[in-house]
């Protein structure tokens, strides 16, 4: 339990730092950024405390908002993702997911991939809708959501594979 808290705190700080120092500066094609900090919410233990996940996601989003001058956009998207996460688990792994030992950071299976896909798409859609906040940019929002989602998913999978916990 204690090592779990430690592990998650380290992940929180590392992903926040990586997002601000590296991934916010990629500006692919001039405007596309990946947001792999959502990995914190995806990799949070399935049976962990739900309220602390909500609070941590909010804090993570708010800190990123502070660095990007974007009000509360990331905080809103992250909190929503943290809240609907159990539903996505059910969608991807079946109804009895709580009794299985699901680990997201492991070999890529269709279940894990669909979970990451649904979560990242939801997060990015909320993020870009709130960030733009105008309906006149509808196609722009959709385009950015699609491409940023692809970008983020590729990066997430790479990161998961790079930092796979050593096998006992």
């Amino acid at each position: 339990m204690n090592s779990n808290v430690l592990f998650n705190t380290a992940r929180f700080i590392l992903l926040l730092a990586a997002q601000i120092l590296i991934f916010n500066n990629i500006q692919f094609w001039g405007y596309l950024n990946p947001y792999p900090y959502v990995l914190f919410i995806l990799l949070y233990p399935v049976n962990g405390n739900k309220n602390s996940l909500l609070a941590a996601s909010f804090l993570l989003g708010l800190l990123i908002d502070m660095f990007t001058n974007s009000g509360g956009v990331h905080a809103a998207a992250s909190v929503t993702l943290a809240y609907v996460r159990p539903a996505f688990f059910r969608f991807a792994f079946g109804v009895s997911y709580e009794y299985q030992t699901i680990k997201i950071n492991d070999r890529l299976t269709p279940e894990r991939f669909s979970f990451i896909l649904v979560s990242v798409t939801t997060h990015h859609l909320i993020l870009f809708v709130l960030e733009t906040f105008r309906f006149s940019f509808f196609w722009n929002i959709l385009l950015r959501t699609v491409f940023s989602t692809l970008f983020t998913i590729v990066l997430c999978i790479i990161i998961i594979h790079l930092f796979k916990p050593s096998k006992r």
């Binding site: 909500l54 956009v73 905080a75 809103a76």
Partner: peptide
């Protein structure tokens, strides 16, 4: 508590967003 905390945090985040816009 889970639902209420979510709503509280979401409202804070949305009000910050709307204010910024």
């Amino acid at each position: 508590s889970h639902k209420l905390l979510f709503l509280l945090l979401l409202i804070i985040a949305l009000s910050l967003t709307i204010q910024a816009h």
